[in-house]
C-alpha cells in the first residue's frame, strides 16, 4: 500500500564477483540492510572498494544479486524479469558518477531527455518536447541547450542534463552514485544545491552515495557508513557527526579537512591510517579491526552484528557502549 512503510528496503543484500583465475569470490556487498523512507535523503559513504556503487547498481537491477532482497514499496524488484521489471524500474532512476560517460555521444540533449519519456509513452510529441524544456529549466539550463551534443558541454552542464533525464519519469527514488565526485569544486556546489532544491520541491527520496563525508553530511537526513561491503553504522546525520558510535566513523570525521590553522585545532583522534584490507580476503572477526585502535581479542574472534543502540543508531561494534568517541568539532 503506497504511503506506508519505507519506500525502499534492502535486506541482507549480497553481491559477489567471480575473481578471474581464482576459486574464491569477492563479496563486494556482504549482507547489507537498510531502508529509505519517503522523501528522505539517505547518504551512503565509504572508501573506494567498499561496495557503494555496487549497492547502487543492485538497487537499479543493473547487477544481479546473490542474496537478500530489494523491495520497492512492497514489490520485490530482484524477482522481476522482463516487462514487469521495466515497468517498476522507472520508479527508481539514477544519476551516474561520470557525466561524460552517461550521455550517449551520438544524441542531442533533447533526444537524451526525450528517450525515457518516449518509452513511457507519455503524451504527444509536442507535449514531450514541452516537457523536455520544462525539465531543462528545472535543472537550471535554458531552451537553447536542446540541440547541443554531449561533447560541447562542460561536466557540470552534462550532469544537469543527466539529472533532468533521471527526473523525466518522475521517479520516487533518485539514486545519485558519486554524482558530484567528477566535478570541479565550484560546479559541485551548484549541483548539490540543485539536488537539494529539487528534492524539496518534488518530495522524492534520494539515495546519495559518496566518499566525501562533508558532502553527504550537508545533504542527508540519515547516513549509512559502509566498510568492506558491510554497514558499520547507520544513524541520523546530526548524531553521527556529533557522536559517532563506530571507530571507523570517528576516523572518517577526523580525516575531514578543517578550515583553520593546525595551531588552533583541538587535539583530535588520529586520522585514517593504512589501506583497507582486500574485500576478497577480509580479516576474521570484525572487518575493521586491522585499522581500529580500540580492537580487542573479541574483535578477532567474533564478527559484530549491526545492532540498535539507544538513541536510534545502528552500529556494528562490540564495544559501542563503552567507547567514548569524538565527533566533529564545532
Amino acid at each position: 500500500m503506497p504511503g506506508r512503510g519505507p519506500l525502499l528496503s534492502a535486506s541482507g543484500l549480497e553481491v559477489h564477483f567471480k575473481l578471474p583465475g581464482e576459486s574464491g569470490r569477492l563479496r563486494a556487498v556482504d549482507g547489507v540492510s537498510f531502508e529509505i523512507g519517503r522523501s528522505e535523503i539517505f547518504g551512503l559513504i565509504g572508501e573506494s572498494g567498499s561496495g557503494k556503487s555496487t549497492i547502487a547498481r543492485a538497487i537499479m537491477c543493473l547487477e544481479p544479486i546473490n542474496g537478500g532482497q530489494v523491495t520497492l514499496d512492497g514489490t520485490r524488484l530482484d524477482q522481476l524479469r522482463g516487462k514487469a521489471l521495466r515497468r517498476q524500474r522507472r520508479r527508481v532512476q539514477m544519476v551516474f558518477q561520470d557525466p561524460h560517460e552517461s550521455l550517449d555521444p551520438r544524441m542531442t540533449v533533447r533526444q537524451a531527455i526525450e528517450e525515457p519519456l518516449r518509452l513511457g509513452r507519455t503524451g504527444s510529441r509536442a507535449a514531450r518536447r514541452a516537457r523536455v524544456v520544462d525539465l531543462l529549466n528545472r535543472v537550471g539550463l535554458d531552451e537553447s541547450y536542446v540541440g547541443r551534443m554531449a561533447y560541447t558541454m562542460s561536466g557540470g552542464q552534462k550532469q544537469r542534463v543527466n539529472i533532468a533525464r533521471a527526473l523525466a519519469l518522475e521517479p520516487e527514488l533518485l539514486v545519485c552514485d558519486e554524482a558530484v565526485s567528477a566535478l570541479d569544486v565550484s560546479v559541485r556546489a551548484g549541483i548539490i544545491n540543485l539536488l537539494t532544491s529539487l528534492q524539496r520541491e518534488l518530495q522524492i527520496s534520494v539515495l546519495f552515495i559518496s566518499h566525501d563525508l562533508g558532502v553527504v553530511a550537508h545533504l542527508a537526513d540519515r547516513i549509512g557508513v559502509l566498510y568492506l561491503g558491510r554497514l558499520a553504522e547507520v544513524s541520523e546525520t546530526e548524531s553521527l557527526s556529533a557522536r559517532p558510535r563506530h571507530p571507523y566513523t570517528e576516523m572518517l570525521l577526523a580525516a575531514e579537512p578543517q578550515p583553520r590553522p593546525s595551531s588552533h585545532r583541538a587535539a583530535r583522534a588520529p586520522s585514517i591510517s593504512g589501506e583497507a584490507p582486500s574485500a576478497a580476503r577480509p580479516p576474521s572477526g570484525c572487518r575493521f579491526r586491522t585499522r581500529c585502535r580500540y580492537a580487542q581479542e573479541r574483535c578477532v574472534q567474533e564478527e559484530p552484528a549491526l545492532r540498535p543502540l539507544e538513541g536510534g543508531a545502528l552500529v556494528a561494534c562490540h564495544r559501542a557502549e563503552e567507547l567514548e568517541l569524538t565527533g566533529r568539532r564545532a
Binding site: 515497468r87 560517460e101 550521455l103 550517449d104 528517450e115 543527466n162 533525464r165 519519469l169
Partner: peptide, 22 residues
C-alpha cells in the same frame, strides 16, 4: 559496458531497443 547503455536500460529500454538505439 558504457554507462550510457546502463542508463538506457534503467529507463526501461527493452534489450532490443537498447541494442538498436545505443
Amino acid at each position: 559496458e558504457r554507462l550510457y547503455v546502463d542508463a538506457a536500460v534503467s529507463f526501461g529500454n527493452p534489450p532490443s531497443r537498447t541494442v538498436a538505439r545505443h
